[in-house]
């Protein structure tokens, strides 16, 4: 088994692969029905490669309602959810475009 190295390289590796190949999406894993949007790669290290996280205090995104996810991401972006872990989410999503937000919400919501 490959040992942990203080970080999750999988997400970054996916992002790099996409950049190098000049493509806009990639297969997250074989069980996914839809292609993962590139912007979702930054979510995977905490929320899990399939939206089901290893961290106990991070929410499961797998199968969540897409509209709820979209609203939540926008609330983090605009600082309407704030304090504690919402500050982490603000840093992660602050530069996402509207299209990215919709794509991420749809993909995690549709991966069940």
């Amino acid at each position: 088994m490959r040992s942990l190295i203080h970080r999750t390289k999988g997400a970054a590796a996916i992002m790099i692969a996409c950049s190098v190949l000049g493509i806009t999406s990639a297969k997250a894993d074989d069980s996914k029905k839809a292609e993962m949007p590139v912007a979702a790669s930054q979510c995977l290290s905490c929320h899990g490669t399939n939206g089901n996280p290893a961290l106990k205090d991070v929410p499961i995104l797998l199968g969540q309602q897409p509209l709820y996810l979209e609203n939540a991401i926008r609330a983090y972006q605009e600082g309407r959810r704030t304090g504690g872990q919402a500050l982490v989410m603000h840093e992660i999503v602050k530069d996402l475009s509207d299209a990215d937000v919709k794509a991420i919400a749809t993909w995690f919501g549709g991966t069940q």
């Binding site: 905490c46 304090g83 872990q85 982490v88 992660i92």
Partner: peptide
């Protein structure tokens, strides 16, 4: 604000600090 999936113990030299909150 820790954006990674691993905890980081942060240490500052010279002056100690008073912890106010953790995860809010």
């Amino acid at each position: 604000i820790n954006t990674t999936p691993f905890p980081h113990p942060l240490h500052i030299h010279v002056n100690p600090f008073q912890v106010i909150d953790i995860n809010g």
